[in-house]
């Protein structure tokens, strides 16, 4: 079932000044309920604008955005209710922390929803668990935490509103490998428990290949392509032409193929390649070659 549908969406920044710029131009796309969709595109391709349109922080200059088949701008007064349904985690969300304790900060969203303190408390605990934040952290000041922990607190702050659609803009940017996998682990956990639709904006093709089942490629304010990881990453040369790339490991597989070692197709993550290589080491039937 389609969760979000974009119909001819365009967005213009700074209208009628010398700084005018068309950020998005006639976007048409569908996002399936329960999927994890990755949005890729090089800097300035309109990814961040697109996600802000999805939860109504920006209003499209032209076109419609439908959530469950209804235009999100049908009742502009109800915009807050929409934001509880479509949770958006910005880039570097740790800069939005402000409360005295981690717990209070995560509870900011649920409190704005007008939930009872019991219910808010329960949501906070659930969200903290998804993001791997232990009880001992809840009473600390968010400013004492490490960068990765702060990031997880900020993400938990949005998860605590139990959004049906969770959008994350570069959730793992600037984190170490451990921090990255903690964040993505939390996101996957949230989706598994709630069945939410997830949209991830990322520059890391590795992360996209590993976690997403659909990919939306943006270029110059337009949707350049949409499809499964396989459909997108098989067009490596075209991706390079628009300033993108395929996962490193997939590049290796391609090079090996050119040299005469064919490991097979659809290998985009280290795990895939590991399994494809295993027969060569265990002396089995020689795998795909």
């Amino acid at each position: 079932m389609t969760k979000i549908e974009l119909k001819g969406v365009s967005y213009l920044y700074g209208g009628k000044t010398p700084f005018e710029k068309k950020a998005l131009n006639n976007i048409n796309a569908c996002i399936e309920e329960g999927s994890i969709t990755g949005i890729i595109g090089h800097t300035g391709s309109g990814k961040s604008t697109l996600v802000q349109l999805l939860n109504g922080l920006l209003r499209p200059t032209e076109g419609q955005i439908l959530l469950d088949g209804r235009d999100i701008w049908e009742k502009p007064k109800k915009m807050r209710a929409l934001r509880f349904k479509v949770g958006l985690v910005f880039q570097y969300p740790e800069y939005q922390l402000f409360e005295e304790t981690v717990k209070q900060d995560i509870a900011f969203g649920p409190k704005n929803m007008g939930l009872s303190s019991d219910e808010a408390e329960r949501r906070v605990m659930d969200a903290a668990k998804f993001c791997g934040l232990g009880q001992e952290l809840m009473g600390k000041s968010p400013f004492e935490l490490s960068g990765g922990q702060k990031r997880r607190v900020a993400i938990a702050g949005v998860m605590a509103m139990s959004p049906e659609v969770l959008i994350l803009d570069e959730p793992a940017a600037g984190l170490d490998p451990q921090g990255r996998s903690d964040i993505f682990g939390g996101i996957c956990e949230y989706r598994r428990k709630t069945g939410a639709t997830v949209i991830i904006v990322s520059h890391s093709m590795e992360d996209i290949a590993r976690y997403c089942d659909r990919v939306l490629v943006m270029s110059k304010g337009q949707v350049w392509a949409e499809g499964s990881c396989d459909e997108i990453f098989s067009r490596a040369d075209e991706l390079e032409a628009i300033g993108l790339d395929i996962p490193q490991i997939a590049r290796l597989v391609r090079l090996l193929k050119e040299k005469g070692v064919d490991l097979g197709d659809k290998l985009y993550t280290v795990g895939d390649v590991y399994r494809a290589l295993l027969p060569y080491f265990t002396g089995g039937d020689g795998g795909a070659s």
């Binding site: 802000q52 939860n55 922080l57 807050r80 934001r83 509880f84 949770g87 958006l88 985690v89 910005f90 969300p93 800069y95 939005q96 900011f108 969203g109 704005n112 929803m113 702050g157 949005v158 509103m161």
Partner: peptide, 11 residues
């Protein structure tokens, strides 16, 4: 940016 982030949390 901060205003938008807090708005996204229902502020």
């Amino acid at each position: 940016k901060i205003m938008n982030a807090q708005k996204a949390r229902g502020a």
